[in-house]
Design a protein around this nucleic acid. Structure first.
Length: 276
DNA sequence: CTACCATCCTGGTTGC
DNA sequence: TGCAACCAGGATGGTA
């Protein structure tokens, strides 16, 4: 479910609340979600302190004592919530429960079970099969108009598809791709390699801008997403196109209305009047 | 490379 | 009101 801004919002809250906390125990109430939980994960993390929490693409990385790293992906419906105490009754989709030494709980729940929780080590983090293929962080220094241009070079697939591909740039999903393309005035149907240099430069800037705007709003709360504190994000009110099929285009003086089409089985929302 | 398909699951919404 | 169809923010591996 969550895309980069939602994961970033959750990550910041977890970082504020959990850095330095010690894990008393980890209880797994499933064999795994998208992937099986690693053998011995609960034993490995027991008693360790959470040293540092960071985000890579849509993954939450929790660095523990000894260099072990928990790699968590929320999939489409995953939630991470901090509780002052462990609730007496386990929720239907609470698959992973961390009990901290101070009595608090961190609960990973995921109705659709597309999320994942894996264990690796700092020394081989970048080689991890989930992380190794990822493209640059869109808000990082290695993502520039030039690197985006290079990533799109020679790709005959639609720009919509190319941007959803995590190898092009990491962390975008359906919502923010639609929004960035609208802000850029570029049709999702355009061939990726066919964008002009100036269009790529616009797109690069708008990808960053829409992500920063969404992070500033605490992410977007559609069905499942909540911040780690349980609060909603608010960026869904600022969508220009996502989920706005039939509504008037918000671009000043544009008489168009938002259309929805399917690309590779996913919905694309755009204004055919001002996105070329 | 590319397009396309299926798959992992559950739950909310829509339409009859 | 009931029920079935459809839809969903993702990632991956297979096929042609």
């Amino acid at each position: 479910m969550p895309e980069l801004p939602e994961v970033e919002t959750i990550c910041r809250a977890l970082r504020d609340e959990l850095t330095g906390a010690r894990i008393r125990r980890l209880d797994l109430h499933a064999r795994g979600l998208r992937h099986p939980f690693p053998e011995g994960m609960a034993d490995c993390v027991r008693g360790k302190r959470i040293r540092r929490i960071e985000r890579r693409a849509k993954y939450i990385l929790m660095h523990l004592d000894g260099g072990d790293v928990l790699l968590c992906h929320l999939g489409m419906s995953g939630r991470m919530a901090i509780h002052a105490t462990i609730p007496a009754e386990r929720g239907r989709h609470d698959h992973v429960i961390f009990t901290l030494a101070d009595g608090r709980g961190l609960i990973f729940s995921d109705p659709r079970r597309f999320g994942s929780l894996e264990l690796t080590h700092e020394t081989r983090l970048e080689d991890h099969p989930r992380l190794a293929p990822l493209g640059p962080e869109p808000l990082g220094n290695h993502f520039s108009a030039a690197t985006l241009s290079r990533a799109l070079d020679g790709r005959r697939t639609a720009i919509k598809q190319a941007l959803l591909d995590q190898k092009t740039v990491a962390g975008l999903g359906n919502i923010y791709v639609c929004e960035a393309l609208w802000r850029s005035g570029i049709s999702p149907l355009r061939q990726a390699a066919g964008l002009t240099e100036s269009e790529v430069a616009d797109l690069h800037g708008h990808i960053r801008a829409v992500l920063l705007d969404a992070i500033a709003a605490g992410g977007s709360s559609l069905r499942d997403y909540r911040r780690a504190s349980g609060e909603m994000g608010y960026f869904q009110h600022d969508f220009a196109v996502y989920g706005r099929e039939g509504e008037d285009c918000q671009r000043p003086a544009c008489p168009g209305s938002i259309e929805r089409i399917a690309q590779a089985g996913r919905s694309s929302f755009f204004c055919p009047r001002c996105q070329h």
